[in-house]
Amino acid sequence: MEKTYTRPKSLQPLQSGFCPGCLHGTASKIISEVIDELQQAHNALLVLPVGCATMGLLYWKVDMIGSAHGRAPAVATGAKRSHPSSLVFTYQGDGDLAAIGLGEILSAANRGENITVVFANNSTYGMTGGQMAPTTLVGQKSTTSPSGRNAETEGHPIPMCELIKELKSPAFVARYALDTPQNIRKARAGIKKAFSYQLEEKGFSFVELLTNCPTNWGLTPLQSLEYMQNHTIPNYPLGVFKDKEAKE
């Protein structure tokens, strides 16, 4: 019988420890499929952050560097500059990238480092148990905003794509959601474009993936997808914000 689907080569043949309904598994799968498609499993170098994504150290089957909280873009800068032939990418959550690592991500983007940053935005600190993130929606409850995020005191969620697209250097900036098969396919195409740009030395690429956190949102997996559709996506518009190669 013809084999039409198999586990991606760049993931370990293991069950993940992500919570039921969590979309980190989906994100990992589409990224690894793209790596396989581009025949980069041997050449990929993944820089992992601090957060749920740190568990990727167990699940990925590519060369990896575990970095300090928020510093993955700086670590990736050092690695890529020293070993330019590697396909260097980070996979960071929103607390890591948009709070403690805001300086590192904006500066790496501004330098136009020829790396790819995949940004998994689920508007919460998942690993530490659901504290308010810089991306938490106004009114969204968390363990440190028990009455819901108050824009008067906590400000508004930080839109990373909209910030990064304003910089001149980045080559590709786009936001996708992982709530439906259709959107997952779009995200997969975006990741492929980002990696291809890096392999073609076109410069910095940034792919934001809107994801969920059923555990810390206190929702069932299905409810969490509805929450994404009703609240997350309206606050974080999907689309390509910048593409250096796009025809005018």
Partner: peptide, 19 residues
Amino acid sequence: VQGESEIASINMVYGASAT
């Protein structure tokens, strides 16, 4: 590389050294 901070700089060194 002129890092954006001392923190970024030492982490760039970490990435370079890893290779």
